[in-house]
């Protein structure tokens, strides 16, 4: 029965070939450091699921942001768990993506023909940081506020366009409700769209180019 359905589907989608291409592809003899990219990917899925759950209650509005976050954490059943996973998952993802990049550097896995994989990787690294930066403001407490003050002033030292850059980031001269909504919009719509697109390209390239083997002495 199951195989019959599988055949029917395969005839129309070719899923067996795709499944084999993705999961049964040949890989060289490698070690645990090669799992760091997958670990990052896994963390990303956790962030997506817990992040969507948080949007059910979080309100990106100055009067309500903090209250809605403390409602999630202190009153909702398992709210502490969902928020905690998202909070620690964010740090874990930054850590993992950096370690993954270090692995790629150490093994020289960025070389021909994987330069473009590397370039999409750099974009993914920046996106991961951007997630952290925009997400940090959302609880709208003192720490969030001052971190954003500091973060945007770092942006301000950019030559020539610094002032404009900060004003655009904040939606004005100072942090306000406009800053909160644009950080929220970036955090839940702009960045996730870009992340998914780039992760798709990144993984496609990993599969299409195959994975590097551990370099041998003198290579």
């Amino acid at each position: 029965m199951a195989t019959k359905l599988g055949d029917w589907m395969d005839d129309r989608t070719g899923w067996r070939t795709h499944h084999a291409t993705i999961f049964l592809r040949k890989i060289p003899k490698i070690n645990w450091s090669y799992t760091l990219g997958s670990a990052t990917l896994f963390t990303m899925f956790i962030q997506i699921v817990t992040g969507i759950l948080l949007t059910l209650y979080y309100v990106p509005e100055p009067q309500q942001a903090y209250a809605s976050v403390s409602y999630i954490t202190n009153e909702l059943p398992f709210g502490w768990l969902i928020r905690g996973l998202h909070h620690w998952g964010a740090s874990a993802m930054v850590l993992l993506v950096v370690l993954h990049m270090v692995r790629v550097i150490i093994y020289g896995a960025y070389k021909y023909p994987r330069e473009f994989t590397w370039i999409t990787g750099v974009a993914l690294l920046l996106l991961t940081f951007a997630f952290g930066f925009t997400g940090y403001l959302l609880p709208w407490d003192q720490r969030a506020y001052w971190a954003t003050v500091v973060g945007t002033q770092i942006g301000e030292v950019t030559p020539v366009v610094g002032d404009t850059l900060r004003a655009v980031m904040l939606g004005g001269e100072e942090i306000s409700g406009l800053t909160l909504t644009r950080f929220y919009g970036a955090h839940v719509w702009v960045l996730p769209s870009l992340l998914l697109l780039l992760v798709g390209i990144h993984i496609f390239l990993v599969i299409r180019n195959g994975i590097t083997s551990v370099p041998k002495r003198g290579e």
């Binding site: 909702l76 059943p77 398992f78 709210g79 768990l81």
Partner: peptide, 11 residues
């Protein structure tokens, strides 16, 4: 995640 999520949504 799924089981706590049900309680969280229904809270």
């Amino acid at each position: 995640i799924g089981v706590p999520a049900v309680f969280y949504v229904a809270g």
